[in-house]
């Protein structure tokens, strides 16, 4: 558990440093560190599917959104409408992430393991990243 805590602290420190020196990619590494902490925790724990994964997903997304908003200059000089819209957007995104995560947990719990399913998983992961890259390049 000490190792898990060390990984987590390193992740949060990296994220804090990134905010301090305003480096977005360093922030990504920090968030990855926090994710790694959760992965280490899950690996060491073993057993059934962790029901708190949806909460972790929502909190990590919220932290990422707020951190990147801060790096982009925050809401200095923003009018009230924009502040409300931004806050509403982040809240909606986090709520959607939690819902999606819950849905994925239910689906993964009901599915049975197998090579075909793993192949579909790999394909889906590659497709998800490819779609985002394609949209960005549009």
């Amino acid at each position: 558990m000490l190792f898990v805590a060390l990984v987590g602290i390193a992740g949060w420190l990296l994220a804090g440093l990134a905010l301090l020196i305003r480096r977005p990619l360093l922030l990504a590494w920090g968030l990855a560190g926090v994710g790694a902490e959760y992965a280490t925790f899950l690996r060491l724990r073993g057993g059934s599917v962790d029901s708190r994964a949806a909460l972790v997903a929502a909190v990590l997304l919220l932290a990422a959104e707020l951190a990147f908003l801060s790096l982009a200059g925050g809401l200095a000089g923003a009018d009230k409408g924009l502040i409300v819209r931004t806050a509403g957007g982040i809240a909606a995104a986090v709520a959607s992430a939690a819902l999606l995560a819950d849905l994925l947990l239910v689906v993964s719990g009901s599915a049975s393991a197998g090579l075909a399913l793993e192949a579909i998983g790999v394909g889906a992961a590659v497709c998800a990243v490819a779609i985002v890259v394609r949209l960005a390049a549009r």
Binding site: G35, Y38, A39, L42, V49, D50, A53, A54, V56, A57, A58, L60, L61, A64, A93, S96, A97, L100, A101, L104, L105, S108, G121, A125, A128, V129, I131, V132, L135, A136
Partner: peptide
């Protein structure tokens, strides 16, 4: 599978 749950929003939101 929990990591899929954590990573999926980071792909879905930009998309």
């Amino acid at each position: 599978q929990e990591l899929v749950v954590v990573a999926a929003p980071f792909a879905l939101l930009p998309a």
